[in-house]
Design a protein around this nucleic acid. Sequence first.
DNA 1: CGACCGTAGTGGTCCGACCAACCTGCTGGT
DNA 2: ACCAGCAGGTTGGTCGGACCACTACGGTCG
Lengths: 243, 243
Amino acid sequence: MDEIPARNGEAAPQKGTVTQRAIEQIKAMIGEGRLEPGQRLPTERDLAARLGISRSSMREAIRALTVMGVLEARHGSGIYVTQLEAGDLLETFGVVADLSRGPRLVELLEVRRILESTATALAAARITPDQLAEVEKHLTAMNATDDPEEILAHDLAFHREIAAAAGNDTMAAILEGLSSRTFRARVWRGYQEEGAFARTRREHAAIHRALVAHDPEAARAAAAAHVGEVEQWLRAQLDAPPL
Amino acid sequence: MDEIPARNGEAAPQKGTVTQRAIEQIKAMIGEGRLEPGQRLPTERDLAARLGISRSSMREAIRALTVMGVLEARHGSGIYVTQLEAGDLLETFGVVADLSRGPRLVELLEVRRILESTATALAAARITPDQLAEVEKHLTAMNATDDPEEILAHDLAFHREIAAAAGNDTMAAILEGLSSRTFRARVWRGYQEEGAFARTRREHAAIHRALVAHDPEAARAAAAAHVGEVEQWLRAQLDAPPL
DNA sequence: CGACCGTAGTGGTCCGACCAACCTGCTGGT
DNA sequence: ACCAGCAGGTTGGTCGGACCACTACGGTCG
């Protein structure tokens, strides 16, 4: 059964909750360019008065947009529109990785394998000497220590530099979310216990060689294999133990 | 100079804002499995009392988690943990597409090309007769009308069915965000004005043929070309006109 | 001229009240 | 015995105002 369409209204204020409406309105203002990136908004009190709602509701709307990475509130200073760059808008993406379990972890790694391999291929073609030096820095640092914490940190940085060299900020931001610290810490805890350190180092070395040679196909293959290893291990883990 | 440590305190959780702390705590509860998907939480008033904060602050925390797709508030009933599926957690992903402009639109299409081509390849290998029938439904419906709105709707559904058939919910959810209605409406407005209807139909037909033949490589190529066409058109648009 | 400090302005937190939607259970008729 | 319909209680949604914590600006003093 269809709902009664009813309202043809103009102002038609009666939709959703008040807070939801405020969210949409501010989002629309930014979408229409009435609010530029970095610009400061009126005070909470002003905004609330303008949209005819209470400050509490306005604060919830602001909180929502803050979580989305659209706004940024600075205590004592004011509310500002973010730069609206990929990194800002995709900051929340990490919670997916944090809260996922079981089969979905494999799905995440599958997506990461696809994007990471492509990003590494792009990086092989475009990477500059400076960027390559940065990659090498983390590669050697990772091989020089036995502290799992430090290894993990350099591992993350290694892939982050490569993603940055690929030249697609959006892709880099998504990969960042797919590799959130807590996510990798959880998966790698078990993975590394099986003496996967050596293999990881070998794979990183292969990726590095492909970057130096500016060989996209080799880079794609090496990155895909690297992520694929973890993916397969995790897949096996899910089949075997009930946990 | 170090701060005076002072507190040897017990609870002493003096970090970040009160609301931020509440967000982390609830997220942690879910992460640790103390809150199951679908489960109902205590009332706002209870939660606030338990964490020793005001209801206002607790509401902001709940609002934040609602935006992240972790919680769901039902008026008059209570607050519930969502199913924590990819679709829930990635709902906000669409705002990236909505608020992006200029070069970032190209980046988004590049990511979509990579994922969509892979998803279509996977679908070619796995799609069932039922799913294929659904895809065909939208294909024929899209060819049977001239209403841009309807074409767009069936176009979205066409790709959505294919993504679903690929069997990776996470990938499907990301693609959903990359193809948000407002995003495509904006880009396609100009694209279709150049008589791209015929080309779009041809490309969709090619994708469909590959699915029927269960030919992953052909499917990958067809999908990549399909998205790539729009990508190249958009790239040209950005170079030429100042707008 | 520069470091210091006070003050106005702004976001952050709290409280208490009331409104609106939902759910339960009782009521009353069939 | 069954079910429609109506209260009442529970719970999220909104409101207004008060106060706290931090920042930024400008004047003051050394």
